[in-house]
Design a protein around this nucleic acid. Sequence first.
DNA 1: GCATAGTTCGAACGATCGTTCGAATATGGA
DNA 2: TCCATATTCGAACGATCGTTCGAACTATGC
Lengths: 203, 203
Amino acid sequence: MRPYDERLDHFLSRAAKVFADQGYHSTTMRDLAAATGMSLAGMYYYVRGKEELLHRIQERCFTRVLAGAEATLAALGSGHADPVDRLQAFIRHHVTFFAANLAETKVLSHEANSLTGERHRKVNAIKRRYVDLLESLLRDVAPDEPAVERSAAAYALFGMMNWIYNWYDPAGEIDPERLAGLIARVFIGGFADARSPSPVHGG
Amino acid sequence: MRPYDERLDHFLSRAAKVFADQGYHSTTMRDLAAATGMSLAGMYYYVRGKEELLHRIQERCFTRVLAGAEATLAALGSGHADPVDRLQAFIRHHVTFFAANLAETKVLSHEANSLTGERHRKVNAIKRRYVDLLESLLRDVAPDEPAVERSAAAYALFGMMNWIYNWYDPAGEIDPERLAGLIARVFIGGFADARSPSPVHGG
DNA sequence: GCATAGTTCGAACGATCGTTCGAATATGGA
DNA sequence: TCCATATTCGAACGATCGTTCGAACTATGC
């Protein structure tokens, strides 16, 4: 069953590109058929319907993001690295991943509420784990910050990072690494360094 | 013709709420009829069609945002206020406006590409003026920063501020003023203070 | 009370949507 | 070569969409 899985994967990637360009709701199954070279009916051999297609795209992408972030942090050593370094690594991973997978991550961010029922709940469960991961990092970085402000800061950081699907051009002047460095510098400089003026750069 | 304008305004506000809750494309004209108490055909007396409805909502909201920002800056004095204070005032106005008009500003942000043709171009023209305004503020705040990084920082700030439609709850623990203060603190502390460690707070 | 303009709406139209179904074709071991 | 399974697809279905049209209702000046 290898060729089947490969064709499904290719189908998901192509569909993600179309969803990213036109939006989920204004993309028709006929658009997807034209973009993938398959026939209208042929797509239903790989996917139960349009909403399951979106679900598979989002779940596949979000699982990779979460696993990648955990692997990045694990590579830093078992918990006794500098909290600021760990936060910086998280930001760098998120931004570079989103910049390298603009179509999929745009579908993830922009169509976050286009799923319904059980499928919506499943994707939200992954999101919860990912948000919790960042909040635990912020707790280590700024333990004296009020919880309300720390939670809002987490969403502010996600805003900076996720918003790039609205403007970032991979062919433009700023490369993903530099963008990640800028966002990390802004957030860490503004949030983490507010109280403890320890050196940040050069992990 | 006063009652006509009032009913149109009320119609736009109601429709904006529905667009914000369900999304533009999955909202049907029948949904809007039910939410406004009008009949399906009756709405076409006030609006040429569904897309013009979205256009009027976005243009009305964006015009207010731009005018409000300009008025806020003008109130600070004719150009010889501290650049950091001017940036802080811009951020505070943006965040409090967005928090106070969550439905309209969500439609503005999330449905930014749901318009087509001339209508899309018109709204983008206002957006351009608004982005240029922030970039001019950043130029005064950090004149030594490379232009590429300054432009990316502008979008990062917009990301922080616009993303709130995805998570902010006005009935929650953090009020708009405090949220604006947090975002201003993070961005100014991380971006503007990177080189010139001048005092920021207390304007 | 009547004419005019302003406003509302029931009913229907054509278009397009997601999905289905059975037949047609390709694939691979015996 | 033949059969069973895997895969593809043309054609159509019912549902729902945005929009239209002409009639009906309302308000106002005379």
